[in-house]
Computed example of a mutant assay.
Amino acid sequence: MRTLFIAVALLSGGISMAEAAEKAPSVEWGRHVSITSGCNDCHTPGYAESGGTLDPKTALTGVAVGFSGPWGTTYAANLRLTVAKMSEDAWVTYGKSFETRPPMPWYNVHEMTDGELRSFYMYVKSLGAPGQPAPQGLPPGETPQTPYIVFAPPQMPQ
Protein backbone atom coordinates (compact mmCIF):
# COMPACT_ATOMS: atom_id res chain seq x y z
CA MET A 1 0.00 0.00 0.00
CA ARG A 2 2.83 2.40 0.89
CA THR A 3 4.51 1.75 -2.47
CA LEU A 4 1.25 2.40 -4.28
CA PHE A 5 0.81 5.70 -2.40
CA ILE A 6 4.33 6.84 -3.28
CA ALA A 7 3.93 5.83 -6.93
CA VAL A 8 0.59 7.63 -7.29
CA ALA A 9 1.93 10.72 -5.54
CA LEU A 10 5.00 10.86 -7.76
CA LEU A 11 3.14 10.19 -11.01
CA SER A 12 0.53 12.80 -10.25
CA GLY A 13 3.26 15.37 -9.70
CA GLY A 14 1.67 16.31 -6.38
CA ILE A 15 4.70 15.69 -4.16
CA SER A 16 8.41 14.87 -4.38
CA MET A 17 10.00 11.51 -3.49
CA ALA A 18 11.28 12.97 -0.20
CA GLU A 19 7.82 14.26 0.73
CA ALA A 20 6.20 10.92 -0.18
CA ALA A 21 8.68 8.96 1.92
CA GLU A 22 8.20 11.35 4.84
CA LYS A 23 4.45 10.71 4.87
CA ALA A 24 4.79 6.95 5.38
CA PRO A 25 4.48 6.16 9.12
CA SER A 26 7.71 4.92 10.70
CA VAL A 27 9.43 4.54 14.06
CA GLU A 28 12.01 7.17 13.10
CA TRP A 29 9.30 9.68 12.14
CA GLY A 30 7.58 8.92 15.44
CA ARG A 31 10.80 9.73 17.31
CA HIS A 32 10.98 13.01 15.39
CA VAL A 33 7.32 13.79 16.20
CA SER A 34 7.94 13.07 19.91
CA ILE A 35 10.82 15.56 19.92
CA THR A 36 9.39 18.36 17.79
CA SER A 37 5.98 18.16 19.47
CA GLY A 38 7.55 18.55 22.90
CA CYS A 39 6.30 15.21 24.25
CA ASN A 40 9.64 14.40 25.90
CA ASP A 41 9.80 17.80 27.60
CA CYS A 42 7.30 16.61 30.20
CA HIS A 43 6.88 12.84 29.68
CA THR A 44 10.58 11.80 29.77
CA PRO A 45 12.50 12.00 33.07
CA GLY A 46 15.55 14.24 32.85
CA TYR A 47 15.02 15.21 29.20
CA ALA A 48 14.61 18.96 29.69
CA GLU A 49 17.25 19.12 32.40
CA SER A 50 19.79 17.38 30.12
CA GLY A 51 19.31 19.82 27.28
CA GLY A 52 17.44 17.31 25.16
CA THR A 53 19.43 14.11 25.64
CA LEU A 54 16.99 11.32 24.88
CA ASP A 55 17.56 8.06 26.76
CA PRO A 56 15.48 5.30 25.11
CA LYS A 57 15.38 3.40 28.43
CA THR A 58 13.33 6.18 30.05
CA ALA A 59 11.76 7.89 27.04
CA LEU A 60 8.08 8.71 27.60
CA THR A 61 7.79 6.75 30.87
CA GLY A 62 6.16 9.64 32.74
CA VAL A 63 7.50 11.94 35.42
CA ALA A 64 6.78 12.17 39.15
CA VAL A 65 7.01 15.98 39.20
CA GLY A 66 3.53 17.46 39.42
CA PHE A 67 2.08 20.53 37.79
CA SER A 68 -0.08 22.29 40.35
CA GLY A 69 -2.63 25.01 39.61
CA PRO A 70 -6.29 25.93 40.06
CA TRP A 71 -7.24 22.55 38.46
CA GLY A 72 -5.33 20.57 41.13
CA THR A 73 -2.10 18.70 40.40
CA THR A 74 -1.42 16.73 37.24
CA TYR A 75 1.47 14.48 36.26
CA ALA A 76 2.89 13.74 32.83
CA ALA A 77 1.58 10.24 32.12
CA ASN A 78 3.63 7.20 31.19
CA LEU A 79 2.80 7.19 27.48
CA ARG A 80 4.23 3.70 27.09
CA LEU A 81 1.46 2.43 29.35
CA THR A 82 -1.16 4.51 27.55
CA VAL A 83 -0.13 3.17 24.13
CA ALA A 84 0.29 -0.41 25.39
CA LYS A 85 -3.46 -0.57 26.10
CA MET A 86 -4.48 0.43 22.54
CA SER A 87 -4.32 -0.71 18.96
CA GLU A 88 -2.79 1.68 16.45
CA ASP A 89 -6.24 2.62 15.12
CA ALA A 90 -7.53 3.19 18.66
CA TRP A 91 -4.52 5.45 19.36
CA VAL A 92 -5.27 7.57 16.28
CA THR A 93 -8.90 7.97 17.40
CA TYR A 94 -7.78 8.79 20.94
CA GLY A 95 -5.20 11.31 19.68
CA LYS A 96 -7.90 13.17 17.75
CA SER A 97 -10.38 13.31 20.63
CA PHE A 98 -8.92 13.13 24.15
CA GLU A 99 -9.01 16.03 26.58
CA THR A 100 -7.19 16.33 29.88
CA ARG A 101 -6.20 18.87 32.49
CA PRO A 102 -3.45 21.49 32.16
CA PRO A 103 -0.71 21.90 31.33
CA MET A 104 -1.05 19.12 28.70
CA PRO A 105 -1.73 20.79 25.32
CA TRP A 106 -4.16 18.08 24.12
CA TYR A 107 -5.53 20.50 21.51
CA ASN A 108 -2.13 20.40 19.77
CA VAL A 109 -2.27 16.60 19.55
CA HIS A 110 -5.68 16.90 17.86
CA GLU A 111 -3.89 18.73 15.01
CA MET A 112 -1.47 15.89 14.32
CA THR A 113 -1.99 14.02 11.08
CA ASP A 114 -2.93 10.35 11.11
CA GLY A 115 0.60 9.62 9.85
CA GLU A 116 2.15 11.54 12.74
CA LEU A 117 -0.06 9.76 15.27
CA ARG A 118 0.66 6.35 13.72
CA SER A 119 4.38 7.08 13.68
CA PHE A 120 4.31 8.23 17.30
CA TYR A 121 2.47 5.02 18.24
CA MET A 122 5.06 2.91 16.40
CA TYR A 123 7.90 4.76 18.12
CA VAL A 124 6.45 4.38 21.60
CA LYS A 125 5.81 0.66 21.00
CA SER A 126 9.45 0.26 19.89
CA LEU A 127 10.79 1.59 23.19
CA GLY A 128 10.20 -1.60 25.15
CA ALA A 129 8.70 -2.40 28.53
CA PRO A 130 6.08 0.12 29.66
CA GLY A 131 7.34 0.59 33.22
CA GLN A 132 5.40 2.03 36.13
CA PRO A 133 2.57 4.56 36.01
CA ALA A 134 3.13 8.19 36.91
CA PRO A 135 1.44 9.36 40.13
CA GLN A 136 -2.31 9.96 40.02
CA GLY A 137 -3.48 13.55 39.68
CA LEU A 138 -4.88 15.38 42.69
CA PRO A 139 -7.95 17.60 43.04
CA PRO A 140 -7.66 21.30 43.91
CA GLY A 141 -6.63 21.94 47.51
CA GLU A 142 -4.66 18.70 48.02
CA THR A 143 -0.91 19.09 48.56
CA PRO A 144 1.22 16.75 46.44
CA GLN A 145 3.64 14.40 48.20
CA THR A 146 6.04 14.64 45.25
CA PRO A 147 8.03 17.60 43.93
CA TYR A 148 5.76 19.93 41.97
CA ILE A 149 5.76 23.11 39.92
CA VAL A 150 3.19 25.78 40.72
CA PHE A 151 1.29 27.21 37.74
CA ALA A 152 -0.31 30.29 39.26
CA PRO A 153 -1.82 33.03 37.15
CA PRO A 154 -0.19 36.39 37.81
CA GLN A 155 -2.07 38.92 39.91
CA MET A 156 -3.28 41.70 37.69
CA PRO A 157 -2.68 45.27 38.94
CA GLN A 158 -5.82 46.94 40.16
Rank of each mutant, 00 (worst) to 15 (best):
F120M: 07
T61P: 07
C42D: 04
G66E: 00
E28P: 11
S87G: 05
S119G: 09
E116N: 07
Y75R: 01
V109A: 08
S37M: 11
T58S: 10
A90S: 09
G52E: 06
A64W: 09
P25Y: 01
G69W: 12
G115M: 08
H32S: 14
G38L: 00
T58L: 08
G38N: 00
G30F: 09
Y94D: 14
L81N: 10
W29R: 15
E19R: 03
T100K: 05
G66H: 00
V33Q: 06
L10G: 04
W71P: 01
T44L: 01
T73E: 02
P130N: 07
Y75T: 02
G13K: 12
F98V: 02
W91M: 08
G69Y: 10
K57A: 14
A84Q: 12
N40T: 08
L54S: 05
G38R: 00
S50P: 07
V33C: 07
E116F: 04
T143M: 14
P25Q: 04
T53V: 11
P56G: 07
R101K: 12
T74I: 06
A24W: 13
N40A: 14
L54E: 03
T113A: 09
V33D: 05
G137W: 01
A134N: 09
H43A: 01
G51K: 05
H32V: 13
A76S: 08
C42S: 06
T143C: 10
V65G: 05
T73W: 01
A64E: 07
P102G: 06
Y121M: 03
R101T: 11
A77I: 10
P139K: 07
T44M: 04
N40L: 10
G131L: 03
L60F: 01
E22F: 15
P25V: 04
E99P: 12
L81T: 11
S16R: 11
G66L: 00
A20W: 13
P140Y: 02
G62F: 03
G141E: 04
G128H: 00
G14R: 14
T58R: 09
T93D: 02
V27I: 14
P140L: 03
Q132C: 06
G52K: 03
K125Q: 10
P45D: 08
G66Q: 00
G14H: 15
D89A: 13
Q132F: 06
E99Q: 14
M112A: 15
E142K: 08
L11W: 07
L127R: 04
G38W: 00
S34M: 02
